[in-house]
Structures are given as C-alpha cells and as structure tokens.
C-alpha cells in the first residue's frame, strides 16, 4: 500500500487527529496520559524522592524555599492496531475491499509517521491471526477477502491478539449479526483509543429497486427470494439505520468514534468528508 499513489497523496495531506488519551508506547510525538518529558507543561508539585531533578524549578525554590518540580505531559509513540475485516461480505462490491485496504495502509502510514508501530491484523479464518507490520503492509494489496468468520465471532472467541493501551482502528462493514454494545465494548476494552470505520458499498447504503431477486448472503450462503421494491428497501434501510444508530450509541458510551464511509466515493473523499469530520484525521 505504500506504493499506492492515492494512499501516499492522502498520507501527505492528512495526519492523525488528536488522540484522546494515548496510554502508552515508546516516546514519540503524541502526548501520553502520564507525566513525561515532553515540553508541554502540565503542573507543579513538591519534589518527592525519585523525581527527575532536571525538572526542579529552581526559581520557584528561590522564592518559596520549597523544592518544586515541573511536571510535563508524557510524550509517547502510539501502538496502533488496525483490524481489517477480510470477510466475504467485504467483497460484495469491488470498491469495498479496495477502500478497506487503502484505509488500513493509510492508517499504518500515518501511525508510522508519528513514530508508532502500526500493526494491521486481517481478520481471517486461519488462527492465530497474523499481525502485519508497516514493512509488510504491501501484502494487503493481494490479501484475499474470503473469510467467513465475522468480527463478532472472533472477538467473542478471543481470537484477536489485542494489546492493551493501543490505538485500535476497526475497518469493517458490520453487516453481520451482532450486538453493537457488546462488540464495541469488547473492542474498546484496554484500548486507549477506538476508531470504528464502517465501509459500505453504494448500493448497500442506498439500494435501488431491482425487482425480483434471489438474495444470497455470500458469507452464510443463505438464500431468500425477495421482490426488491421501494417497500422492501424502506424496511432494509430502517434496519440498517437502526444498526448504525446502535453502533454510534455504543461508540459514544465507549468513548470511541464511529464513521461510515461509502466505498465508491474513493479514499480522498472519504478522508476529506468523513474521517476529518469524525476527528480521526486532520489536515497536516
């Protein structure tokens, strides 16, 4: 993905949005939740044995005869974990896997640009799940979207190797049966930040009447005959919006961010219109 011109152009244009509370990681450009050695002043307090004497404020000691130390915000490099849904449902429309790969690559590049250590975890049927670092992120270009295991199943079974206090970015269509509250809570567990990006095809987001069709779920192989008219579309959209509302509410409760992007819109438009609006990216 590092060779993808569009990804590189977007990576040069945007950077990560401000992370809420990066919890841990090696020193870098992001501020940690604890006290560190960054230049951003946080507060004063009395010196206690063990404090870094470099932070003693001698001027304050002269005025008050009390050893005071300056406390600065911790500065860390984030550990970014990008969960990429590679199930069959993501391959329904050709644009979905393309945008999903590009987003995963973009997030990895942006994370690496901050000195972090990104890891893309494709969600597959083969366990244990593989962690792909930045140096191997180009493998995503040929990564097959053929998995039948859903994100909810993998999370429920504890098959996703998540590390605590990491920034988690989940890229999926979330078009599988699940309970948003449970799933988001599991994803947010021990994470410093959770971003959820829902990738939908244009017809999935705004279906048009097609007449009689035999619908085939490409993950479960379930089939159903249905007359796709305005009435059935209205019912579908009502269920889809209910699902999205559930994810938004669950994300809000878990202090996570949720955004839906349309695959056919392309990477640049998704970043400009959706990810920036959600605070996940900002112009560099």
């Amino acid at each position: 993905m590092r060779n993808d011109a569009e990804v590189r152009r977007v990576a040069d244009t945007y950077q990560f949005g401000l992370l809420r509370v990066p919890a841990s990681g090696r020193a870098g450009e992001l501020l940690g939740r604890g006290t560190g050695s960054s230049l951003e002043f946080q507060e004063y307090r009395e010196y206690t044995p063990g404090d870094d004497i470099r932070h003693l404020d001698w001027a304050a000691y002269g005025r008050s005869d009390t050893l005071m130390v300056r406390l600065y915000r911790e500065e860390i490099s984030p550990r970014t974990e990008i969960l990429l849904d590679t199930s069959l449902s993501m391959a329904v429309a050709a644009a979905k896997p393309l945008l999903s790969r590009q987003l995963a690559g973009l997030f990895a590049l942006l994370s690496a640009g901050l000195g972090g250590s990104p890891a893309v975890i494709p969600l597959t049927d083969q366990l244990p799940l593989e962690r792909i670092g930045l140096e191997q992120v180009d493998r995503l270009e040929e990564w097959p979207f053929t998995s039948r295991s859903t994100l909810a199943e993998l999370m429920a079974d504890g098959n996703i190797p998540l590390k605590p206090r990491s920034i988690r970015i989940v890229i999926s269509d979330f078009l599988f049966p699940h309970d948003p509250d449970t799933l988001v809570k599991q994803l947010a567990s021990d994470a410093s930040t959770l971003w959820i990006v829902q990738v939908l095809g244009a017809w999935e987001a705004d279906p048009t009447p097609l007449g009689g069709r035999r619908l085939v779920d490409n993950e479960t192989a379930s089939e159903a005959d249905l007359l796709i008219n305005q009435a059935s579309i209205d019912e579908y959209l009502e269920r889809l919006h209910r699902l999205q509302r559930g994810l938004v509410q669950a994300s809000r409760r878990a202090e996570a961010s949720f955004v839906t992007v349309q695959a056919e819109a392309g990477l640049e438009q998704a970043c400009r219109d959706d990810l920036c609006a959600a605070g996940m990216l900002r112009v560099a």
């Binding site: 449902s89 993501m90 329904v92 269509d173 078009l175 599988f176 049966p177 095809g201 999935e204 097609l210 069709r213 035999r214 619908l215 085939v216 779920d217 490409n218 993950e219 479960t220 379930s222 159903a224 249905l226 796709i228 059935s232 019912e235 579908y236 269920r239 889809l240 699902l243």
Partner: peptide
C-alpha cells in the same frame, strides 16, 4: 444477487 447482510432484508 449477492448481498452482505441478508438478515437486514427481513
């Protein structure tokens, strides 16, 4: 017609 979320079609 292959779809991703058949359950959403009710």
């Amino acid at each position: 017609l292959e779809v991703a979320g058949l359950h959403l079609w009710g």
